[in-house]
């Protein structure tokens, strides 16, 4: 940043551009972001670019090895794996984004109020978070999915509930630290309404750790969705999903072993990308502090 000022004296740099400047210097972060953008494009452009219908069965060509016609081969009932991967990416991404989004939607107002106002409301909210957290994440997700019934929507809701305590805790903890800062006191001393202080002055200061946590959690959501689908509680057949594909190829691990690696590698890569992105965001988003 100091270099930037030196190059263009008198010109003020916006915080946003500092962020991009720092982020663009982080090579692995850029690669991860590019991969995720590409994946999103492929997932949502699947109807246009997928070579085959993901549901079309060709029983004459089952468990075929990768070839020019089927770049990633075919599965146990002769469906094109590449096409199914493309459509499946959509499920994974939706599950990741929607579950984290839903969780944040609930956790953000609750956590902000809990941390800022404190008192009995805080106790109630945090004891609820404690209760949810006593249960192992995946077991809880499984139970909720089982109760609500299988399907992508219910799996997403289940995951959102599982993530809730983590977000609540993170938000509340950050708010507790920020609310004691002199600048919040200063905001109060000029007569800013409490609601504006929470929504504006506090929220902006806790945004960075939250964004990072959201990216990490998306990785976990992706894995959890795959696990739920693998166990038959997520996306229902014949719709393609990475977790589903993992479980069906599992049966043929000795006869068509390459199949299991395709969704496996895709899941691993995507989770890795999300984690690398989270790291890069953390490094670039850090609150501006004066370096002497």
């Amino acid at each position: 940043m100091t270099t930037a000022t030196a190059i263009v004296p008198g010109l003020t740099m916006e915080r946003r551009s500092t962020f991009w400047l720092r982020f663009s210097r982080n090579r692995s972060g850029v690669i991860a972001a590019a991969y995720l953008v590409l994946l999103t494009a492929v997932a949502f452009g699947a109807p246009l670019i997928a070579p085959y219908d993901p549901l079309e069965q060709t029983l004459a060509a089952i468990n075929q090895q990768p070839s020019a016609a089927h770049w990633l081969g075919t599965d146990d009932i002769g469906r094109d794996i590449l096409s199914r991967m493309m459509y499946g990416a959509r499920v994974s991404l939706i599950a990741g984004v929607a579950s984290v989004g839903l969780s944040l939607l609930i956790a953000l107002p609750l956590g902000l109020v809990s941390g800022y106002v404190k008192g009995p409301l805080d106790t109630v909210i945090m004891r609820f978070a404690d209760a949810v957290q006593t249960l192992p994440a995946l077991v809880l997700a499984l139970t909720i999915s089982a109760v609500l019934g299988p399907g992508l929507r219910n799996a997403t809701i289940a995951l959102a509930v599982v993530f809730l305590p983590t977000f609540l805790r993170l938000i509340r903890g950050q708010v507790l630290a920020v609310r004691e800062e002199t600048y919040i006191e200063a905001s109060r001393s000029i007569g800013t309404p409490t609601f504006d202080i929470i929504r504006h002055r506090v929220l902006h200061n806790i945004a960075s750790p939250l964004i990072v946590q959201a990216a990490v959690t998306m990785g976990f959501a992706l894995l959890a969705e795959a696990a739920l689908s693998f166990l038959g509680l997520g996306v229902q057949p014949p719709s393609p999903s990475w977790g589903r594909m993992l479980s069906s190829s599992y049966t043929y691990v000795y006869t068509a072993g390459w199949q299991i690696f395709i969704p496996g590698v895709a899941i691993a890569l995507t989770v890795l990308a999300l984690n690398v992105l989270a790291d890069a965001l953390r490094d670039s988003l850090g609150r501006e502090i004066r370096t002497s």
Binding site: E181, T182, Y183, E185, A186, E288
Partner: peptide
């Protein structure tokens, strides 16, 4: 309505009394 309007306050540590997440202009506008 009194705070900031009729009685204003300045603090000991100016660095901590200004919100690091907002520009100076934004805080003056606030």
């Amino acid at each position: 309505k009194v705070r900031g309007n009729h009685i204003a306050m300045i603090f000991q540590e100016p660095l901590t009394a200004l919100n690091p997440a907002f520009t100076i202009g934004d805080q003056l506008v606030e």
